[in-house]
């Protein structure tokens, strides 16, 4: 049961990775990357690593998304059409 759950999360993470790389808009790319962090958090918690899951949830999902969004806000002044 738990194996099927892990496989579903892993497959959705791989699909999200491909979508994050091939997405046209950078905002979609950043949110797919955030989804990969959430999936990795769940997998770490299942694989008996609660410390790593807490770190990934706080740092890898929360902080890095904020940093990416701030950079996107800094670097998109007039040419939003650039992919």
């Amino acid at each position: 049961m738990i194996n099927i759950f892990m496989i579903i999360i892993m497959i959705s993470m791989i699909i999200a990775a491909i979508k994050a790389i091939t997405a046209v808009k950078l905002l979609d790319s950043i949110f797919f990357f955030s989804f990969i962090g959430i999936g990795a958090t769940i997998l770490f918690a299942i694989m008996k690593a609660p410390d790593v899951a807490l770190t990934e949830a706080a740092v890898g999902t929360g902080l890095i998304t904020l940093v990416f969004l701030s950079t996107l806000r800094k670097t998109s002044k007039e040419d939003e059409h650039e992919s």
């Binding site: 609660p50 410390d51 899951a53 807490l54 770190t55 706080a58 740092v59 929360g62 902080l63």
Partner: peptide, 14 residues
């Protein structure tokens, strides 16, 4: 318990 300086520091900085 699970946690520590890095995780709690980032959460308090939130």
């Amino acid at each position: 318990s699970p946690g520590g300086g890095f995780q709690g520091g980032v959460m308090a900085a939130g």
